[in-house]
Amino acid sequence: MIEVKALHKRFNDNEVLKGVDLALQPGEVVTILGPSGSGKTTFLRCLNFLEHADSGAIKIDQDWVNFNQATSQEVMALRRRMGMVFQNYALFLNKTARQNIMEPMVLVHKVSPTEAYDRATQLLQTIGLGAFGDYYPAQLSGGQQQRIGIARALAVHPTVLLFDEPTAALDPELVGEVLKVMKAVKQAGVAMIVVTHEMQFAYEVSDRVIFMADGAIVEQGTPQQIFESPKEARTKAFLSRFKVRYA
């Protein structure tokens, strides 16, 4: 169970998040759509304390934590239950693919190195990179790096994974392999909050779609509701720019 309550964030006079509420069931996949600058990235970054939110609270599995008075222990505890997948992969460039997956397990979650090695090997298989464990990020394609980024975040058994436009930096022919891995994450029962412009993915894979604009949730519902019969004018205008094949 993941809950976020009344998240407010401003950069100087620019109020970027105007009180965002969100609750996810275990294993639920929520996609956030919205125009550029609407605060989607800031929202995700506030959740794992990469940005310091002004007010609001978050709860993952355990007690509520206030964004503006969290202790570093509380931040650490929350981060251990959350994974983040970045637009530009953000793999550790001085580590091999396998080490990227292993290290957070060993350092943060105190998994034994042999156990971590086995899990990393198994995850590499799952993402179709079983033979690439000893490659460094610089030796891999963007799609391969992003799949490793997902495996790294998934390896520690998080309650929820945050994705910030995970395929936006990829060449079109590499997008599919990453989306496929994301579907596998859903199969594994991990809750996901996905910011993306991949409408087909949002339509097919999400349990719920949220449309966000100007720092607030404008409309949310099942993919069918949002894509096939949006209620708000701004949602309609935004979606009219994309083509989605309805099932």
Binding site: L93, I127, G128, G130, Y136, E177, A184, K186
Partner: peptide, 25 residues
């Protein structure tokens, strides 16, 4: 320097993702 190390012996596995569980979507 990890960046200038030679590539490992080229992988023989397929590069296309092999997802363990069947997709239902």
């Amino acid at each position: 320097n990890y960046a200038s190390r030679p590539m490992p012996i080229m992988a023989t596995n397929p590069v296309i993702p092999v997802i363990e569980k069947p997709e239902t979507v």
